[in-house]
Nucleic acid binder design. Structure first.
Length: 336
DNA sequence: AAGCGATCCAACCGCCCCCCA
DNA sequence: GTGGGGGGCGGTTGGATCGCT
C-alpha cells in the first residue's frame, strides 16, 4: 500500500522524531525505520537527513584551507568519488564536498573557460592552486604561532544555519565562550589538523614545485587526524527554535553525545560513526615536507597548538578561503 | 526599497551493487 | 541462480539567501 509520503524540507518535529528513534533503536534498515518511527518519509530521505544533517558528528561551517587542499588532492586522484573523499574529511559529508566542488571549483573552471576534466585544468589545480593553498596555510599558521595564550573561543564564521540541532553543533564547536580546554576535552573522536609546509614557500608556485608530488593518500590522511580520547562534561545553552530568541540551558552536550552513542551503527561506509562529535581545528599539527615527501609533527601538544592558533586562524580562513579563486588573471596566464 | 541574477546547499532522483532468502 | 529489498553513490533540482544595481 502506498501511504502518502512527505517530501521537501524537514520540520523540527520530524527531526526530533528521527533523532529519538535512532537514539533508542540505532540506525540502518531505513525503510522500516521510517515506518516504525511513524515518519511519513522514504527510508532514503531519513537516511539522508540523518547522515547529512542530524548525526551529531557532522561538521558544519566553511571548508577550511586544509580541507580545500585535501579535496583538491583527493579529487585529482579519485575524481568524483565524493563519498570516498569524504571519508578523509571527518565530519564532512559527500554532499557537502560535492557542493563545494561544484560551486567553487567548477565555477572557476568555467571562468577560465576550460573543461574541469581537462589536463590543463588539472595542472592548474596541482601546480598553481594547491601550492597557493599551501602558502596560505603556512602564512596563517605562521601568524597564528605568534599569538599568545589565554584565548577563548570566539565565533569564527557565523553559521547561516538556524536550526536548533545545527545550533547545538555550532555552539559546541566554535560559538561558545568556553575555555579551550573544555572544547578540546568534550571531543572523544578527532581533533584534526594539518599544516603543509612547502620547501620554498615564497616560490611555491614557481618551477621548483612543479614536479613535486604529494605523498600517497594514506600517508596524507593518517597524519591529518589524531584522536583525542578524553571526554569531559561541560554545559552549553541551546536556542529553542529558529524563530525564537529564547534559549534554554540543557544538560551538557556531552550527555547528549553519550545519548547518541547509545545507538549502534549498522552502516558499512564512512558514515559508520554514530556517536561522537568532531572538534576539528585546522592548524599546526603536522608539517609536510614537499622535498622529502614526508610529514613531521610539531612538538607542541594539541592544546597548545589549538590555543596558539585559534584566533588567528579564524580570521585567516575567512579572508583567504575565497582568495584562492580570485586570481583569474594569474590562472589564465598559467593556462597559456 | 525593490528587483533580479548569482550563489549556496538541503533534498531528491535514478541507477547500481550487494546481500539474503 | 535469481528476484527483491536495502542502501550507497553521483548527478540534479529548487527554494532560500545574498549581493549588486
Amino acid at each position: 500500500m502506498m501511504m502518502d509520503l512527505r517530501r521537501g524540507p524537514w520540520t523540527v518535529e520530524e527531526d526530533r522524531t528521527l533523532i529519538n528513534y535512532i537514539a533508542n533503536h540505532g540506525e540502518g534498515r531505513w525503510n522500516s525505520l521510517a515506518r516504525c518511527a511513524g515518519l511519513k518519509r522514504t527510508g532514503k530521505s531519513c537516511r539522508l537527513r540523518w547522515l547529512n544533517y542530524l548525526r551529531p558528528d557532522v561538521r558544519r561551517g566553511n571548508i577550511t584551507l586544509e580541507e580545500q587542499l585535501l579535496i583538491l588532492e583527493l579529487h585529482s586522484r579519485w575524481g568524483n568519488r565524493w563519498s570516498k573523499i569524504a571519508q578523509h574529511l571527518p565530519g564532512r559529508t559527500d554532499n557537502e564536498i560535492k557542493n563545494y566542488w561544484r560551486t567553487r571549483v567548477q565555477k572557476h573552471a568555467k571562468q577560465l573557460k576550460c573543461d574541469v576534466n581537462s589536463k590543463q585544468f588539472k595542472d592548474t589545480m596541482r601546480y598553481l592552486w594547491m601550492p597557493r593553498l599551501v602558502e596560505r596555510i603556512q602564512a596563517a599558521n605562521t601568524a597564528a604561532a605568534t599569538t599568545t595564550a589565554n584565548i577563548t573561543v570566539s565565533a569564527g564564521a557565523p553559521s547561516t544555519h538556524h536550526h536548533q540541532f545545527n545550533n547545538f553543533h555550532n555552539n559546541n564547536m566554535i560559538n561558545n565562550n568556553l575555555p579551550i580546554s573544555n572544547i578540546i576535552n568534550i571531543s572523544n573522536d578527532f581533533v584534526g589538523s594539518a599544516n603543509y609546509t612547502p620547501e620554498n614557500s615564497s616560490t611555491a608556485a614557481s618551477s621548483d614545485s612543479f614536479g613535486a608530488q604529494f605523498s600517497p593518500v594514506s600517508d596524507l590522511t593518517d597524519h591529518y587526524f589524531t584522536a583525542n580520547n578524553n571526554p569531559t562534561a561541560t554545559t552549553t545553552t541551546l536556542p529553542v527554535n529558529n524563530n525564537s530568541n529564547t534559549t534554554t540551558t540543557t544538560t551538557n552536550p556531552h550527555d547528549h553525545h553519550q545519548y547518541f552513542q547509545a545507538a549502534p551503527s549498522t552502516t558499512h561506509d564512512h558514515h559508520q560513526q554514530v556517536g561522537g562529535t568532531y572538534y576539528y581545528h585546522p592548524s599546526m599539527s603536522t608539517t609536510y615536507d614537499q622535498n622529502n615527501m614526508s610529514f613531521s609533527h610539531e612538538g607542541l601538544n594539541i592544546d597548545d597548538r589549538f590555543q596558539a592558533s585559534m584566533d588567528q586562524n579564524n580570521q585567516y580562513w575567512i579572508e583567504e578561503v575565497d582568495n584562492l579563486w580570485n586570481n583569474v588573471d594569474q590562472d589564465m596566464w598559467f593556462l597559456q
